[in-house]
C-alpha cells in the first residue's frame, strides 16, 4: 500500500535522514496493518510524515502509494488518493461544532464538478442531497466510533485538549482513508486518555483502515502495533515485532541509555 524507498531529506545542508525504507503492506482479506514509528525527539518522524503527505519536499527517494508516486503531489491530492494524516498539534475549525467539523471533512474532501460547486446548491437541494446525506451518515458513524456523540454540538474551540486531539482523528477518518497516518496522537494526554486513544487506533484498524502511527510513548506503541520502525540518527536503526524491538540493544541504548524512560 505504502512503500517508502531510500528517502532522504536535509534542511539547509543539515541531513535529517537518509536511506529510509518503510513499508505498509496491502493485505486484502486479512487484518489491516497497524504500524508504529518511534524515535527520539528531533529524529525526523514528523518530517517523514510531512514528505509523504505533500507538506515538504524530499531530496531523493520515492514514496509509492497504491502503485502511484506521491512525491510532488499536493496535500489534497494525497488525501483524495486515500492517505490522510493528523498533526501533532490540534487542528480544527474552532468556531464550528464537533459535528460540523467532521461534516466538513466528510463532505468537502471529495472532488466536486463545477456544477456541484456552484450551481446545484443554488438551484436545487435534491441534487446535493445524496452527497449531504452520505456525509451526514459518515460523520455520525465516525463520531460514534471515536466516542464523541455526546460532544457533537460542542463548539470545538471550547473542547478540552484530549477531545480536540480525538476530533482531529475523527476528521481524518471522515475523509475515508485507506491509510491513516497519526503524528503523536497521545502526546499531551493523561494516562486514561492515552489508553483510550490506543484502543481507538486498534478499533479503527479492525474496521479495515491501515494505521501508521508516530509515538513517543514506548509502552503504548509496544502493546498496540504489530510492527515498529525505530528512527534515530537519520537512519532506521531497527525494524520488527514489538518484542524484538524491546530487546534490541541499539534501541535500548537510544531510548534508555540517554536517560529517556519508556514513558518519555
Amino acid at each position: 500500500m505504502l512503500e517508502i524507498r531510500n528517502l532522504s531529506k536535509s534542511f539547509q545542508g543539515l541531513q535529517v535522514f537518509s536511506g529510509i525504507d518503510l513499508t505498509v503492506e496491502d493485505r486484502p482479506g486479512e487484518k489491516s496493518p497497524l504500524i508504529g514509528v518511534i524515535g527520539p525527539n528531533g529524529a525526523g518522524k514528523t518530517t517523514l510524515f510531512n514528505i509523504f503527505t505533500g507538506y515538504a519536499k524530499a531530496d531523493g527517494g520515492s514514496v509509492i502509494f497504491d502503485g502511484k508516486e506521491l512525491l510532488g503531489k499536493k496535500p489534497h491530492e494525497i488525501v483524495r488518493a486515500g492517505l490522510t494524516r493528523t498533526f501533532q498539534s490540534t487542528l480544527a475549525f474552532r468556531q464550528l461544532t464537533v459535528k460540523e467539523n467532521v461534516l466538513v471533512a466528510a463532505y468537502l474532501h471529495e472532488d466536486f464538478s463545477f456544477l456541484e460547486r456552484f450551481i446545484y446548491p443554488l438551484v436545487s437541494l435534491k441534487l446535493t442531497q445524496k452527497k449531504t446525506r452520505d456525509a451526514q451518515e459518515r460523520a455520525e458513524k465516525v463520531l460514534s466510533m471515536v466516542g464523541m456523540l455526546d460532544d457533537m454540538d460542542m463548539v470545538s474551540g471550547n473542547l478540552p485538549y484530549g477531545k480536540q486531539k480525538k476530533l482531529g482523528i475523527a476528521m481524518g477518518l471522515a475523509t475515508e482513508p485507506k491509510l491513516l497516518a497519526l503524528d503523536e496522537p497521545a502526546a499531551g494526554l493523561n494516562p486514561h486518555e492515552t489508553a483510550e486513544t490506543m484502543e481507538l487506533l486498534q478499533e479503527i484498524n479492525r474496521g479495515g483502515t491501515a494505521v501508521l502511527v508516530i509515538e513517543h510513548n514506548m509502552k503504548l506503541i509496544m502493546t498496540a502495533c504489530e510492527r515498529i520502525y525505530v528512527l534515530s540518527g537519520g537512519r532506521i536503526i531497527a525494524e520488527g515485532l514489538p518484542q524484538e524491538i524491546a530487546k534490541n540493544e541499539r534501541v535500548i541504548e537510544v531510548y534508555l541509555g540517554k536517560g529517556m524512560t519508556a514513558h518519555a
Binding site: P75, T86, F87, A92, L108, T175
Partner: peptide, 12 residues
C-alpha cells in the same frame, strides 16, 4: 478559517 485543516480534509 484554518488553511492547514482545510488542506488535510482534502480541499485544493
Amino acid at each position: 478559517e484554518q488553511r492547514t485543516a482545510a488542506e488535510i480534509v482534502g480541499i485544493d
